[in-house]
Design a protein around this nucleic acid. Structure first.
Length: 677
DNA sequence: GGCTATGCTTTTTTT
DNA sequence: AAGCATAGCC
């Protein structure tokens, strides 16, 4: 049976594409043509008469899902749009909404992002007057860990061996759950955990979804957590038409609860699984791959394997050692400039990768001074910006009237005379009456007395929300137009203007730009779907599934990215910075008192390094410095242990501190003289 | 109720 | 080094 999708595939790839029924594990090493296999496999399924609407493909990011949709569309046309392609979180949300529709008494819910979760926890701590000087983020990480492993508060108790975070998490966990229920809010974890529990508890429900998704495909399976695996099992455990694709050597999300065990033990969860290895690497030159193989081979607990290069050896991998962090940055920037100017690389061929976002700042400055165009992946995202969160809060109040965290966020922003004193009185009333804040706000005249001067601003605020709720619901009105009016009515422009009045105008541009960016993403959303709904847009923003303005102008730019952000990408020329102990591996994985629930070990740092190395197609340069400023203080640095297993003959080392050759002395002298002018 | 100065912690990674 | 939170001031 000849398939039109098998051209240009190697035998293993073809095997993966044509194995459609039964459990299948595809161990796809870096650069082995994984994405092609996935898209071709779906196309093959459709060709074999499987209805697209019965196919589910789960990816790690919405971006990856959208890209895959795009690719599939170019192969099978409009049928592609009937395939469900999303992240576990978007899928969970879809399921929850569908189930809520079936249930009569379902309450509308909101999705809380991490900052909302934090506010929720803060609220609890304040209300119960608990210890305040606690790292609530660390506590939240632990709570998230419990949730993802289906551990309930009653299963936990504080023991002498519990550290302060664990103790706090155990204490706060039940309160947090209670609070979230009261707010009718779901956090990211709930989006996966709740649908799973639903299906595990209700066989009819489970069957509905198993029937809808008769063929399931999961990408980046090594980064799934327990909840995600159980969701998968619930859907596909019976029909067993499940294909997972991944690489245990690229598991880098253990800190977020991901279990490499999921991919290592796939055959236990889905007995009789067929396993296909894709070990031919089409991406990288041989030297790069040799280095990668050496680095990763040190790890235990993995499927032992090595990537086989298809391409020739290419140039050696370079290791550049600089005197300090500034020199490292400057060298990288200058090198990139010369790659573009002298060697004819396009900026988009080049990427700089690093462990921590901190590294990007100084590098940015250097690149800017050389006028090298760049884009940054990761870092403070659009969704973390204050203006975005403010606007989102205002919108949530429209679709989810009285939503507590949003209400608290914007009830007095911009300042309208509802200050802390007023808010405390209202909160106290709400607490004693076991009501939500919004009810106190509505009853403000009774609670505060008729003469309180906050009454006017409160009623103005309420009518603002009510007025725009009507406007947004109005069928004939366009979302973005109403949004613009809303922003005007809120008075954001004026507020940002006064708040940035002292500045150079740059601050104003940046903040107002974020507001406009938000508006643009709303418009992008409206263009994308047939029937735009405010609620759906809000959920998409919460799940980071909207087009961000900056992305559309991503033409010819050098990529700066964290190692995590670089997963799945490839570049002709990669510069991997900061190969030092404490940076890669990061010190927080080295220190004994890790505050995170899940101890991310050295092995994961090594995989991160491996991911970085294997992004390179043609050339790889690794850099490190002998000393560096850390939190304002200069520190001596030692080379990363990940360099140790690399044989010297694979490397081309440039040590700027080594005794200089005559040439270099002359060179340095020349440069020194140049600085004098 | 809002603004400013001081002191103190910090960012590892992200759906 | 810098950004944030708190407290204290207007």
């Amino acid at each position: 049976m000849a398939s039109r999708w098998l051209n240009n595939l190697n035998p293993e790839q073809a095997d993966a594409v044509t194995t459609i029924h039964g459990p299948l594990l595809v161990l796809a090493g870096a650069g082995s043509g994984k994405t092609r296999v996935i898209t071709h496999r779906i196309a093959e399924m459709i060709d074999n008469g499987i209805a697209p609407q019965n196919i589910l493909a789960v990816t790690f990011t919405n971006k990856a899902a959208n890209e895959m949709k795009h690719r599939l569309k170019s192969m099978v046309g409009r049928k592609a749009s009937r395939v469900t392609m999303s992240t576990f979180h978007s899928l969970g949300l879809l399921m929850l909404k569908a189930e809520a529709k079936l249930a009569e008494n379902a309450r509308p819910f909101t999705v809380y992002g991490s900052s909302d979760q934090l506010s929720c926890l803060k609220e609890i701590v304040r209300r119960y007057q608990l210890e305040r000087s606690l790292d609530l983020e660390a506590v939240l990480t632990r709570i998230s860990g419990y949730k993802n492993d289906f551990i309930l508060p009653k299963d936990l108790e504080i023991t002498p061996s519990s550290d302060e975070y664990e103790a706090a998490a155990i204490e706060l966990y039940p309160l947090y759950l209670e609070q979230m229920t009261a707010f009718s809010a779901y956090d990211f974890d709930d989006l996966v955990v709740k649908p799973t529990m639903m299906m595990e508890a209700d066989e009819n429900c489970r069957r509905r979804w198993a029937e809808r998704f008769q063929y399931v495909l999961v990408d980046e399976y090594q980064d799934t957590n327990t909840a995600q695996m159980r969701l998968l099992k619930a859907i596909a455990g019976e029909h067993k038409n499940v294909c997972v694709v991944g690489d245990d050597d690229q598991a880098i999300y253990g800190w977020r609860g991901a279990k490499v065990q999921n991919i290592l033990n796939f055959s236990d969860d889905f007995p009789g699984a067929k396993i296909i290895y894709l070990m031919r690497n089409y991406r990288s030159h041989g030297h790069i791959l040799a280095v990668a193989n050496k680095v990763i081979a040190v790890n235990k607990d993995r499927h032992p394997k090595a990537m086989i290069p298809v391409r020739d050896a290419g140039p050696k991998v370079r290791l550049v050692i600089q005197r300090d962090g500034d020199c490292e940055c400057r060298w990288v920037a200058e090198h990139i400039d010369s790659l573009i100017v002298r060697d004819g690389y396009r900026p988009s061929d080049i990427a700089v990768l690093y462990r921590s976002n901190l590294t990007a700042r100084p590098l940015e400055l250097e690149l800017r001074s050389l006028r090298v165009p760049y884009r940054i992946i990761g870092g403070t995202s659009f969704f973390d910006k204050k203006e975005v969160k403010d606007l989102l809060a205002y919108l949530k109040l429209i679709t989810h009237y009285g939503e507590e965290i949003s209400l608290r966020r914007v009830i007095n922003y911009p300042a309208r005379g509802i200050g802390a004193v007023t808010l405390n009185k209202l909160s106290a009333w709400a607490e004693s009456e076991h009501k939500l804040l919004i009810e106190a706000v509505e009853k403000a005249p009774e609670i505060l007395g008729d003469k309180d001067r906050a009454l006017k601003p409160i009623s103005d605020f309420l009518s603002l929300i009510k007025h725009f709720t009507d406007e947004f619901l109005h069928k004939n009105r366009k979302l973005d137009e109403v949004m613009e009016e809303y922003i005007k009515a809120i008075g954001l422009y004026e507020d940002i203007q006064t708040a940035t009045a002292g500045g150079s105008g740059k601050a104003f541009e940046a903040r107002w730009g974020n507001v406009l960016g938000f508006l643009e993403s709303l418009q992008a959303y409206m263009r994308e779907v047939n029937q735009p709904l405010l609620e759906e847009f809000i959920n998409r923003v919460s799940l980071m599934d909207v087009e961000v303005g900056e992305e559309k102008e991503s033409g010819e730019r050098v990529t700066l990215s964290t190692l995590h952000g670089a997963k799945g990408l490839e570049f002709r020329h990669v510069i991997l910075m900061g190969l030092e102990e404490g940076l890669l591996p990061h010190e927080r994985t080295l220190s004994p008192h890790a505050t995170d629930a899940i101890i991310t070990d050295i092995a994961e740092e090594r995989r991160l390094c491996y991911v970085g190395i294997t992004r390179a197609k043609d050339e790889l340069i690794m850099t490190r410095a002998d000393k560096r400023l850390i939190r304002g203080k200069e520190q001596k640095r030692t080379p990363s242990r990940f360099l140790d297993p690399i044989p010297l003959e694979l490397l081309d080392i440039t040590d700027m501190n080594a005794p200089a050759s005559a040439d270099e002395v002359v060179n340095a002298l020349g440069q020194f003289l140049a600085t004098l002018e």
